[in-house]
Design a protein around this nucleic acid. Structure first.
Length: 278
DNA sequence: CTTCTTGTTACTGA
DNA sequence: ATCAGTAACAAGAA
């Protein structure tokens, strides 16, 4: 499941592959994954253009076109989306190869871009929740402004974060998952951040001390940036560093005593150590 | 066959 | 206004 670190990894990998390459053909196999304009207009808009920059806001990828500012392409991977690049020599970048998603194009390749040099970009999505959306400037602003604080940037300031947290009474897990609060955190990293802060995911923000809020602020940055260094969990090696996610029933790696519990918080499964987390 | 799982959003009701 | 809870989306796993 791609969260901020995975999406950032995709962004960095893709930047070195596709920027500046002319798109010569667009194949849309599942029209419903194209949003904002009709499939016909979508193809027409992309063909002949090239990307000048790839940005990111939370888990959303923002593709800018060279010499054309009226529209921007937004790509959301949701739960099972992948962007896989294949060079003309057959070198594959991104995604994670499994039996089901192995072939390129495969059963789950729904949008395919062909570049002038013979390389290709595949959008694979098993569950088809992801999307490619062409938006105008005005809507782009509206969408990007809808996200909350962007961690790992200078705008993620302690004073603003403290004010935000102090104005809410929700459970910490619900807060971390809300993209309008802090953008980019999903189920895996929310659990991992809660573990690092030693707070149970169902604890209300109003019950957390000033000291722990400061630790929370620091750990959001720490957990996300160290996951990026490992290229994330789904495609990279951060899996080895997970302390609670996917470890329910197992002994806690820190206290060696507690068994990781799994409870429902904010409609999601949440894992925590009943000894380390209060 | 049924039920559960996954992230996000829309909706409802407190 | 805020927040909790739930259905819906698709398809695979159990």
């Amino acid at each position: 499941m791609p969260e901020l670190p995975e999406v950032e990894t995709v962004r960095r990998d893709l930047k070195s592959c596709v920027l500046g390459k002319k798109i010569v053909r667009v194949e849309v196999r599942k029209g419903k994954l194209v949003q904002g304009v009709s499939v016909r207009k979508f193809k027409k808009y992309l063909e002949g253009k090239s990307f000048s920059e790839i940005g990111r806001r939370g888990k959303l990828l923002v593709f800018r076109f060279k010499g054309s500012v009226e529209k921007t392409l937004l790509v959301h991977l949701k739960m099972t989306g992948q962007l896989v690049y294949k060079s003309s020599k057959g070198l594959v970048v991104g995604g994670h190869r499994t039996k089901k998603l192995g072939k390129l194009p495969g059963k789950y390749s729904h949008i395919i871009l062909d570049f002038e040099d013979g390389s290709r970009l595949f959008f694979n999505d098993l569950r088809q929740f992801g999307y490619w959306k062409l938006v105008e400037k005005k809507e782009l602003g509206r969408i990007l402004n809808g996200f909350g604080m962007e961690p790992l940037t200078d705008s993620f300031r302690w004073k603003d974060f403290e004010k935000l947290v102090r104005s809410k009474k929700r459970q910490i897990k619900a807060f971390l998952l809300d993209q309008k609060m802090v953008a980019g955190i999903g189920n895996i990293y929310a659990d991992e951040i809660c573990f690092k802060v030693r707070i149970r995911p169902n604890r209300k923000l109003s019950e957390i001390s000033e000291k722990k809020i400061k630790i929370l602020y620091r750990e959001i940055t720490n957990v996300l940036s160290s996951a990026i260094k490992k290229k994330g969990t789904s495609y990279g090696s951060y899996l080895k560093f997970l302390r609670v996610y996917g470890r329910e029933g197992k002994k806690c790696l820190v206290c060696k005593k507690g068994r990781i519990k799994k409870i429902n918080v904010a409609g999601r499964k949440s894992r925590y150590c009943p000894i380390c987390q209060i």
